Measured scan of single mutants.
Amino acid sequence: MQRVNMIMAESPGLITICLLGYLLSAECTVFLDHENANKILNRPKRYNSGKLEEFVQGNLERECMEEKCSFEEAREVFENTERTTEFWKQYVDGDQCESNPCLNGGSCKDDINSYECWCPFGFEGKNCELDVTCNIKNGRCEQFCKNSADNKVVCSCTEGYRLAENQKSCEPAVPFPCGRVSVSQTSKLTRAETVFPDVDYVNSTEAETILDNITQSTQSFNDFTRVVGGEDAKPGQFPWQVVLNGKVDAFCGGSIVNEKWIVTAAHCVETGVKITVVAGEHNIEETEHTEQKRNVIRIIPHHNYNAAINKYNHDIALLELDEPLVLNSYVTPICIADKEYTNIFLKFGSGYVSGWGRVFHKGRSALVLQYLRVPLVDRATCLRSTKFTIYNNMFCAGFHEGGRDSCQGDSGGPHVTEVEGTSFLTGIISWGEECAMKGKYGIYTKVSRYVNWIKEKTKLT
């Protein structure tokens, strides 16, 4: 034993070699072989497995989906700052455009905790909710729209109204504003409101030439003092309507412009014939205590009207009353817009006519005020429907199939267009061939041609 100890002390290297040989010859039971080890760690190889990531292109799944990435790591994937920024906006807080917040056709661009709407022409605001041009839906104005110097929408209202708090709607500024039905039992019968379409306001006024200088022999019209197929109006439903009495009662109609003036057809009036105007009328054979009678003290036909040349060209006249009318729910003026808007309103496509005229061709006159909704007829169809001249200051309205029309005794009465609950004068009943005849239409004086003249002559002093 002493000898062994001496050998170990003198030859430590020998001992180490012996131990190493023993270990190498022993069977290893701690580690699995290569094949079995792979069965336990069965993990798919990654895209760049075996390579240094710093030297390969980034992978979106590896960089940002398996674990949260930084902007720089995302930049490695896209290799483009702009594309990385677009991805980053949604990656950080989701897609803010998912709810489609942009209105009126706006395009949404996502941002971090926010979004941006790219608005089409005519709109602005956070969600493109603000109209900035009158060309689109009248700028959301209830009545009139004008573009300011910086191309912003400025709404306005006709006389007797003021802008509401929203700067879009119009509200009454006087007790009985024009064009409004205020009798409670008839307010439910107000005709369907007309909503502004998209309009090209630059070209809204037709490029028409008034044929002022045409000389033409007097034409022989049949029954051209021209509501057939209409309905009984309720008291106060058309408070701007008046009836004219002269040699015979209810020979023509008219509309209240203001307390002192009536507008009617020029062919209705004769110099030297006494005319009485009755406002607030409903049943011409009954006294309903809503009527107001006034005498006409002055007749002003349009300066281009000449019955000797043509009885229905420039067929418009103004009547001055001896005493002002007292405005109330049964006696209310009709609204008159400017030339541009009167023309736009007419193009809405349908209007209402009213009167006490004959209820059928050569038949009896109506006792109760009649009204009828009539569609506008395109000019080409209008011209083809008659052998008589249709001037540019006239328009056609009615039904091709016949059966409904204005008729004798309705002449001078109103053709009105309702705009968001307020009625505007767009025409004056003038003439036609018979009444409600198939293929024939009622012919009306186009008020847009005469609004400046009306307003100039009827100013209240």
Rank of each mutant, 00 (worst) to 15 (best):
Q2C: 13
Q2H: 08
N5L: 11
M6S: 11
I7Y: 08
M8H: 12
A9G: 14
S11E: 05
P12D: 05
G13H: 07
L14H: 03
L20A: 04
G21H: 06
Y22A: 13
S25W: 13
A26L: 04
T29I: 12
F31H: 08
F31M: 15
F31P: 04
F31C: 08
E35R: 09
N36I: 08
A37S: 15
A37G: 15
N38K: 14
K39R: 11
K39N: 09
I40S: 03
K45N: 15
S49I: 09
K51N: 15
F55M: 15
F55A: 15
V56C: 04
E61F: 13
E66S: 08
E67W: 03
R75V: 15
E76G: 15
F78C: 05
E79H: 13
N80A: 11
R83S: 15
T84W: 03
F87C: 04
W88G: 15
Y91V: 15
G94I: 09
G94A: 11
G94T: 12
D95S: 07
D95E: 04
Q96C: 03
N100F: 07
P101C: 00
C102P: 00
G105F: 03
G106N: 01
S107K: 09
S107H: 11
K109L: 07
I112L: 11
N113E: 09
S114A: 11
S114L: 07
W118E: 15
F121E: 15
F123S: 03
F123D: 01
G125K: 00
K126L: 14
N127Q: 10
C128A: 01
E129Y: 01
N135I: 05
I136R: 12
N138V: 03
R140G: 08
C145V: 00
A149K: 11
D150P: 07
N151F: 10
K152W: 05
V154D: 07
S156W: 14
G160R: 02
G160M: 02
R162W: 05
K168Y: 11
E171Q: 11
A173Q: 07
V174Q: 08
S182D: 07
T186F: 11
S187W: 10
R191D: 09
T194S: 11
D198R: 12
V199T: 12
D200C: 04
Y201R: 12
V202T: 13
S204P: 12
S204A: 05
A207F: 08
D212L: 07
T215V: 11
T215L: 10
Q216T: 11
Q216Y: 12
S217A: 07
T218I: 09
Q219S: 05
S220Q: 10
V227L: 11
V228N: 06
D232M: 14
A233K: 05
P239V: 01
V242I: 05
V243N: 04
L244R: 01
G246N: 09
A250N: 12
F251W: 08
I256L: 04
I256R: 00
V257A: 03
N258S: 06
I262G: 02
A266I: 00
T271L: 13
V273C: 05
V273Y: 06
K274E: 12
V278Y: 04
G280D: 01
G280V: 01
N283H: 11
N283M: 10
E286Q: 11
E286P: 06
E288L: 06
H289V: 08
T290P: 05
K293L: 10
R294M: 02
V296R: 02
V296L: 02
V296D: 01
I297A: 08
R298S: 09
I299W: 06
P301N: 08
H303K: 12
N304S: 13
N306P: 02
N306K: 11
N306I: 05
N310Q: 08
Y312K: 06
H314E: 03
H314T: 02
I316V: 09
A317D: 00
L319A: 05
E320G: 03
E323K: 14
P324H: 04
V326E: 10
S329A: 10
S329M: 10
Y330N: 05
P333A: 06
A337Q: 01
E340C: 03
Y341Q: 10
N343S: 11
N343W: 03
I344K: 15
K347N: 11
G349N: 06
S350W: 15
V353E: 01
S354M: 11
G355T: 09
R358T: 14
V359Q: 14
V359R: 13
S365L: 08
A366F: 10
L367Q: 14
L367M: 05
L369A: 14
L369D: 03
Q370K: 10
R373F: 04
L376K: 06
V377P: 02
R379F: 14
A380F: 15
C382G: 02
T386S: 14
F388M: 10
I390C: 04
F395K: 01
F395Y: 03
F395P: 00
F395W: 02
C396F: 02
H400Q: 13
G402D: 08
R404G: 15
R404F: 13
S406C: 09
C407D: 03
Q408S: 12
Q408H: 14
G409D: 05
D410E: 14
P414C: 09
E420M: 11
G421P: 02
T422P: 01
F424I: 01
G427S: 00
I429F: 14
S430L: 13
K438F: 10
K438E: 14
K438L: 13
G439S: 14
K440N: 14
Y444R: 00
Y444M: 04
K446I: 00
K446D: 07
V447C: 03
S448Y: 03
R449K: 06
V451K: 03
E456V: 09
E456M: 12
